[in-house]
């Protein structure tokens, strides 16, 4: 199909979609109104489970099974990327590592300063996910980001030496398996709920938060490792 024909087909479809979308939006409740029946029920349920972060309560308690599916999508994407990006037979790692180039001092200094701070922030987000904005997914991504500051400061060699990839693969697998086990065992929020806004509250929500955090962090590290390997160490023949 030529570009012109494709754009014509798109134009027709987009026009129909725009009209239908406008009709649907016109039928929605007014923007910013105070009618939110699901909100009222969700907040009541979250407070019943002593979870201060209502979004975390929804994600890990009311919609826990959805989050299990989300976790499986994440695992599937990591497995898919590893399978897609595995080196082909004609690709060999570089003989000389072009990444041992000297880093800029300012970049290296700032990365070393922010490495521990970022890791600390990541763990803070994990542990307080049921109290404050944050949680497992966000904390996991911050942890993985912090780890990759090593790449900015010490280069790829430093990252590779301090990042035993097999461990992260195991962590990703085991934490996802633990989450799946909790989901398939039809686990309800069985732990004592404690008092709302306390660190030890919300029952299973903080535990699932931490599990998901490690799963996401390890998954992001494994994922980024595949892209870094492609970009840095592989040398294709053709």
């Amino acid at each position: 199909m030529s570009r012109r024909a494709r754009q014509a087909v798109f134009g027709t479809g987009a026009a129909v979609l725009a009209v239908l979308f406008a009709l649907a939006a016109a039928g929605l409740p007014p923007f910013g109104g105070d009618q939110h029946p699901y909100r009222d029920r969700a907040v009541a349920a979250a407070l019943h489970q002593a979870t201060a972060n209502v979004v975390a309560s929804l994600t890990f308690d009311l919609r826990g099974l959805d989050t299990l599916g989300e976790e499986m999508i994440l695992l599937g994407s990591v497995v898919g990327a590893v399978a897609l990006l595995r080196p082909r037979p004609d690709e060999k790692p570089h003989a000389d590592d072009k990444t041992s180039r000297p880093q800029q001092d300012a970049v290296a200094l700032i990365s070393y300063v922010f490495l521990p701070l970022t890791l600390l922030l990541g763990f803070d987000l994990l542990v307080h996910g049921h109290l404050t904005p944050g949680g497992g997914f966000q904390g996991g991504v911050v942890l993985a980001t912090g780890l990759h500051l090593l790449y900015l400061s010490g280069g790829y060699d430093a990252l590779r030496r301090l990042r035993p990839l097999a461990w992260y693969e195991w962590v990703e697998g085991l934490t996802t398996a633990a989450f799946a086990l909790a989901g398939t065992a039809n686990l309800v929020n069985f732990l004592p709920h404690g008092r709302v806004q306390q660190l030890f509250s919300a029952g299973t929500v903080p535990i699932l938060n931490i599990l998901v955090g490690f799963a996401v962090g390890a998954g992001a590290v494994v994922l980024l490792a595949q892209f870094l390997t492609q970009a840095i160490t592989l040398e294709g023949e053709g």
Binding site: R39, D40, A52, N53, V54, V55, T132, Q198
Partner: peptide, 11 residues
């Protein structure tokens, strides 16, 4: 919708 410690719990 996050009742962080120290903030009031109210709709």
């Amino acid at each position: 919708p996050v009742f962080s410690p120290g903030s009031p719990i109210k709709l």
